[in-house]
Nucleic acid binder design. Sequence first.
DNA 1: ATGGCTAACATGGTTAGA
Length: 262
Amino acid sequence: MSRNALALGTWNVNSLRVRLPHLEQWLATSPVNVVGLQETKIVDADFPAAALDRLGLAGGWHGQRTYNGVALLSKEPVQDIVRGIPGYADDQARVIAGTVRGVRIIDVYVPNGQAVGSDKYRYKLEWLEQLRNYLAAELALHPLLAVVGDYNIAPTDADVHDPKAWDGQVLVSAPERTALGTVLQLGLCDVFRRFEQAEQSFSWWDYRAGALRRNAGLRIDLILANATLAERCTGCWIDVAPRRWERPSDHAPVVASFDLTG
DNA sequence: ATGGCTAACATGGTTAGA
């Protein structure tokens, strides 16, 4: 990887308290120098900043008790940290943004939605509209922009292990995909699909029913980049290995590398 | 088979995840 390479990761850790050793083990071999975390499930006062500092990571975090929580951590300085979506009074901690080496990075934990038609589903769609408006404004401000995170939407049936079984379900339903489409139409690219990938590539597998063994997964963790940044993307991959470790998160980390030369 | 598993909060059983 070149000197000006930025390796940007995203990982839903499903409790940073539990997964701190996993993060450390992953970083020991992964080239990532910036990572967005989701579902940290820890209030800011208890955030393991000192332990992360010993791993060479600093940045920003935005947490709450029990649920949600995001963090943007880097081996390089993180500037201009913004928590939440400005102007949107959301009591759930789902967004944090910062700038690393001139790249604006927005880390998101999109609501799950629980079930099509539920109150949480309606919140998910409303939340995605707020995200779209936020990203439209951010794209006008930042020449290089990435939006990483757990989108809780499988973009197409190619991102679903069994499209028939999932047809119309939450994470896959047409209104969710349309909402994600309006985000992509702002000029953001799902960089994973810029490269040749194995079929049945997923980033999440249910803990239950041997889903990982059967590769019964979904690709719902995405790295989006604006056109200028996407052109500089040199690779994007899902690191399945940490999903196979002891006491894993149900999500695998995803990484995209960018050549920032010039 | 509407199950299966994991985490938080709590300290048994509920809520939530996806």
